[in-house]
Design a protein around this nucleic acid. Sequence first.
DNA 1: TTGAAAGCGATACCAG
DNA 2: CTGGTATCGCTTTCAA
Lengths: 342, 342
Amino acid sequence: MSQTPKQSAEGPVPTSTDVARLAGVSRATVSYVLNNTSAVRISEPTRRRVREAAEELGYVPHAAARSLRAGHTRIVLLPTAHIPVGPLYSQFLNEIQWALRALDYTVVQYGSIGLGADEAARAWAELRPVAVLSLGEIALTAHGVQVLKRSGAKAVITLGPQRVEGAHSLVMDQRAIGVAAAEHLLERGRRGIGVVVPAEPGLELFSKPRLAGVRKAVAGAGVGARVEALTMAYDEESAAGLAARWRDLGLDAVYAYNDEYAQVLMRALQDAGVDVPGECAVVGADDLLLGKLLRPRLSTVHVEMPTGREMAELVDRVVRDPGGAVERHDLMAARAVPRESS
Amino acid sequence: MSQTPKQSAEGPVPTSTDVARLAGVSRATVSYVLNNTSAVRISEPTRRRVREAAEELGYVPHAAARSLRAGHTRIVLLPTAHIPVGPLYSQFLNEIQWALRALDYTVVQYGSIGLGADEAARAWAELRPVAVLSLGEIALTAHGVQVLKRSGAKAVITLGPQRVEGAHSLVMDQRAIGVAAAEHLLERGRRGIGVVVPAEPGLELFSKPRLAGVRKAVAGAGVGARVEALTMAYDEESAAGLAARWRDLGLDAVYAYNDEYAQVLMRALQDAGVDVPGECAVVGADDLLLGKLLRPRLSTVHVEMPTGREMAELVDRVVRDPGGAVERHDLMAARAVPRESS
DNA sequence: TTGAAAGCGATACCAG
DNA sequence: CTGGTATCGCTTTCAA
């Protein structure tokens, strides 16, 4: 169903000049009234006239003009991810937006799909954000950070698997997740551990360190266990393919990247007649609701994340004092949550 | 882990004046070169000098200044949802962004969490977007549309369950989903149909019409079937509570809002010893991957959505010709996908 | 081929 | 208490 709106006689967009004219005052007075400038006292009748004029014209200030004059913006730019994001991340994002808005920032998500890292940074810099907060997969190079800083960004903060030169980087060591999963499986007596590596592009930054974490934990344990990387896509066919050749692999456990991949793989294994956890223990990660709904209940790795409020406060602190040090956060504590699948 | 970046001696942000000075030309020339203005021919050596100067200074044009001068922007504003969005929606959003960028628009997602509908519209209008594309839940009133149009927006498009006065509204009739679910259940011989209504706030715009659709289909069938609305939250406790009193309800089927709610409820029913589909048929909606992974496989309602490209092209068309009519789309064709749970 | 200058809209100084 | 006015960075006529 569609509808053509009536042409609302698009006159020119009203400016503060129009408001001033209608109210019979100067533009300066309009500005004072509308911004409640406390340094200047305006008579109440005048205030009323100005407000009424603004209302009548449907006046909305022009953000570009304002920030041009002010020399800075209150924009916090959040680069949006290219990859499908999980429910965990969505909620985190909402929290951050809410908290930043409460601190009087304007939150703008800016996608950069189809742009290279440096092109994207340039595009972001054109908006002159006061801060850039990059979550998750990082599309930010040292050069990109420099471009942003040069364009006036007070804070460039990344939260992800790796450090970025020049930015305040909160490094989430993804290896810790692999370590927790592996230690749990070793404890359970498993000695042949498969590690699912998503076939989907863009997840390498997460999957590789997680795999490395498994390898590290296994090597450290010194019990002669074996680790095997298994590429798998997030769909039924790919999982079925992997399940079909499971017995040839000679493994007795699998760490399936995260709970969603684990769900798909566990299903495929069961359909192929592989007993979980008897023949094969399965562990996911992220501790999503769905894990508790599966049968057997999915063992997982729970990850401590900073809250949205903490992130927002960090942004604010760095904006106010760009040179100040950020105290070490104990990010990314990971612990296994054993359930029935392992 | 954290890191304090070296203070990069934040000089003032370079402007085109700085570039001009360094290159030994005027600001006009800088503008011509950097924008590849074809109406003016600049000598090659000059072009090179300008480009090198811009590069050396790390010059990035100031979007606000540019659009102020131009009198318009290429910003398409996508209000972001307040509610947790599913994977379906995330992918749709990415498609749209990609397609709009290909049409040379700047896509900006702007959250309005914690703002009323009209405050939000005002905040959006300050950015002077050339178009606003509101997806899903609608935080846009007739007045909001007027504010946006007055501020220069050429296109205000909504895609959601209801029409918005003044906007180009693509109405997705959510009732069709309920109708499809109900007709399917009636065909299967079910006569007592429960309808899950999410307890989470913000979903009423979807859940109410879906419920209405079920009622309509049942009334239309004239077979004397019964419909009962069942409030349930998206967590295990709530689902378990509903499952515990299932047998008292005297129903033999349930349409569970969408696949995710269906998953939680089906799990709870099974744990309570209610046989699915024997004692109770379960139908979801959205046709997510997870439905195929459940056992029994979840019956669902598949919904035809416009593609991201189509939406982007619609935006572009309306921007270029704001008065033009939009042809009727056959949005939201819904069809049942029977599997094992019903 | 290049440069000078006007002006987009809002703000804040300084006079009146 | 209120009103001129310069200014932010950039584009685009108009002159030279």
